[in-house]
Design a protein around this nucleic acid. Structure first.
Length: 645
DNA sequence: AGGGTTTTTT
């Protein structure tokens, strides 16, 4: 270890001894993630463990394994990691790398985080939901545990903002070791960023010296298109070029192709989404092409609709992207926007997740953690009152909180499950309807990326294969069919290939199912009753989902052509990928997706009498607040509904 | 007829 680095660490140690909390700002390669925790461990600050949080699972795993190597200990002993589905820690573990979500989850059992004497929140500038909540919780814990030490580690931008929030915590800067990256801007704005990106890649390929290229785009389709164009143009000019796409839904074996160096004399050009900004690091990149855009999920509490929009990146992201060119030697970054745009239009840092999310999960977990006054919780970035009200209202409708806003017994049980409140409510209901196993299997399938794969070159074949699982009731029961068939089949790989299922996502669903089932067993009041007859199951499963999703239903309008949501009469359509092929009068949907139209994804037909029976307050024609046409349809169904008057 | 998913996490 060089002497300058050592003094930095001594400095760190000193500050952390003197103050409860510190903010540490470090550049890439500064060793803040690997060496600072080791140093604090050696400093023996208290007798507890040191927790280091990371926003991503892979980071927690790989950093832990590197630190174990550096300390020459076995991974899982003194140094370990804890992520969902995998606990690589033991009694001896003193330095514990974990995802921020995991530490938050642990707080439900141990709100004072009493097993730790030091807590380090790394990558705090990413402002993940979990880190932002941990911020507020830690502030409260620090009041009660004066011996606890807390270190917030972040990239270089907006250091003062963190320092302000942590009321005067000492600010430490540690320089990194990165190669210089020369940055270029365009002289005027580009009209078509995909075309400009393709053009720039081709120019680099033709005129720059050796070195791989990393080009950022926003989505799968434009990435595939850009790759094809770059490859075609390289072949025209006779340059040896390996063009590779990279995005998260790309099969693993294809993702892995971006890492090995290209053959001698061949240039590698990788066209990637944001995944290459932080999640994956590719060595050997010398040129970065940055159009300054990315796709972002935005939640509108007023309309209750989430939409995926192309938005400008932040200055922090732009720097992160540029940094990807300087990991192995000096590099260049070509920004496809003007210097003026960079300075005047890009926000300093990315919009924190908490500002653009549906807060119902956040609110229920805070309630479970004993934070009663959520409106006055010390958020670094308080979410809008409107967003908060929407969440509270929803939880009240679900019976998770009472009129006072206090968590009910049902709400407390719901919070045990790591899924959305709608879903946890359906789990609770399923026990009463004797279909716990099945509902958990369906929820596992709903909680992973789409298990039905539909590759561009075999769309027809995939659709045909998927029909094998189709249930006339719709998608929830079709997902159940697929899950059951997968569990029962012999060779998983072969079965998935034949039926166009994503093996990766199916395995993930299996993991989720296992976890939910084990939580359900532990949950004291959730006895798993004997299952009813198979014939009754389709009814009881749908009833259980209605209990969680009665606010996410839609009915046909007067013309019989369109659906209107019961929440705010928004016009929606059944997604073309749905197994629900007939125009059922009433449908329940898992979520809506907005393209040029608004689609319901994962929809299931629900007979109106079932709605009246299960969610009487909302669907009784004499009491509900629905449109006249909806009431008319409900009134027609009323005689068939078994409802106490 | 209808098919614009980025990325994480419990």
């Amino acid at each position: 270890m060089g002497s300058s680095k050592l003094s930095t660490h001594l400095h760190t140690d000193f500050q952390v001894r003197e103050h409860q909390s510190s903010v540490l700002i470090g550049e890439t390669g500064s060793g803040k993630t690997t060496q600072v925790p080791q140093f604090l461990l050696a400093a023996e600050l208290g007798s507890g463990k040191i927790a280091v949080t990371q926003p991503r699972r892979v980071a927690a795993m790989s950093v832990a394994s590197r630190v174990a190597q550096e300390m020459d200990v076995e991974l899982g002993k003194e140094v370990g990691y804890l992520i969902r589905f995998e606990d690589m820690t033991s009694e001896e573990t003193r330095l514990k790398y974990m995802t921020d979500g995991m530490l938050l989850r642990e707080c439900q059992i141990d709100p004072f985080m009493s097993q730790y004497s030091v807590i380090i929140l790394d990558e705090a500038h990413e402002r993940t939901l979990a880190t932002d909540i941990l911020f507020g919780l830690l502030k409260e814990v620090l009041l009660k545990r004066p011996e606890l030490r807390c270190l917030v580690m972040s990239a270089t931008l907006e250091a003062e903002k963190f320092q302000d929030y942590w009321t005067g915590a000492p600010l430490l800067r540690i320089p990194g070791r990165m190669f210089p990256v020369e940055t270029f801007f365009t002289l005027r704005p580009e009209k078509d960023y995909v075309a400009a990106a393709v053009e720039t890649c081709c120019l680099i390929n033709a005129h720059e010296g050796p070195g791989d290229v990393l080009c950022f785009l926003c989505g799968e389709e434009e990435i595939e298109k850009a790759c094809a164009e770059i490859q075609a143009r390289a072949e025209e000019t006779g340059q040896e070029t390996l063009v590779l796409p990279l995005y998260s839904s790309l099969p693993m074996n294809q993702q892995r192709r971006v890492f090995p160096p290209a053959p001698e004399g061949t240039r590698k050009i990788i066209v990637a989404t944001n995944i290459a900004e932080t999640s994956l690091t590719i060595d050997g990149v010398v040129f970065v092409v940055d159009p300054g855009l990315f796709k972002q999920m935005l939640y509108n509490p007023r309309t209750h609709v989430e939409s995926l929009l192309v938005s400008p990146i932040s200055k922090a992201s732009a720097m992160q992207r540029a940094g990807r060119a300087g990991r192995t030697r000096p590099g260049k970054c070509f920004r496809l926007y003007t210097l003026e745009t960079f300075e005047k239009e890009l926000p300093e840092s990315t919009y924190p997740e908490i500002i653009r999310s549906n807060l119902s999960s956040v609110v229920i977990s805070l309630k479970k953690l004993g934070v009663d006054d959520i409106v006055h919780f010390d958020f670094m970035e308080p979410p809008s009152p409107e967003s908060m009200m929407r969440a509270l209202e929803m939880l009240y409708f679900l019976g998770a909180i009472d009129e006072e806003g206090d968590l009910t017994d049902i709400g407390s049980k719901m919070a045990d499950f790591p899924v959305d409140p709608h879903l946890s409510r359906s789990i609770i209901a399923s026990a009463r309807h004797s279909c716990l196993e099945e509902v958990i299997q369906i929820i596992a399938m709903l909680s992973v990326p789409p298990p039905f794969s539909r590759p561009r070159y075999a769309q027809k074949a995939a659709d045909k294969a998927h029909k094998h699982f189709a249930s006339g009731y719709g998608d929830h029961l079709s997902l159940l069919n697929a899950y059951r068939a997968y569990v029962d089949c012999g060779s998983k790989a072969e079965f998935c290939r034949e039926h166009f299922l994503s093996e990766r996502n199916m395995r993930q669903a299996e993991n989720v199912r296992k976890q939910l089932a084990s939580l359900a067993r532990k949950s004291s009041h959730l006895e798993s009753l004997e299952n009813g007859h198979e014939k009754m199951l389709t009814t009881s499963i749908r009833k259980a989902f209605v209990e969680g999703f009665f606010m996410q239903c839609a009915h046909l309008d007067e013309s019989g052509k369109h659906y209107l949501t019961v929440q705010d009469q928004q016009m929606v359509a059944i997604h073309p990928s749905s197994f629900l092929q007939h125009k059922a009068e009433w449908v329940l949907y898992h979520e809506t997706v907005v393209t040029d139209r608004c689609y319901m994804r994962n929809a299931t037909a629900i007979p109106p009498e079932m709605l009246i029976e299960v969610a009487t307050k909302f669907y009784h024609p004499d009491r509900c607040k629905l449109t006249a046409h909806a009431k008319k349809m409900l009134r027609r169904a009323l005689p068939r509904a078994k409802v106490a008057n």
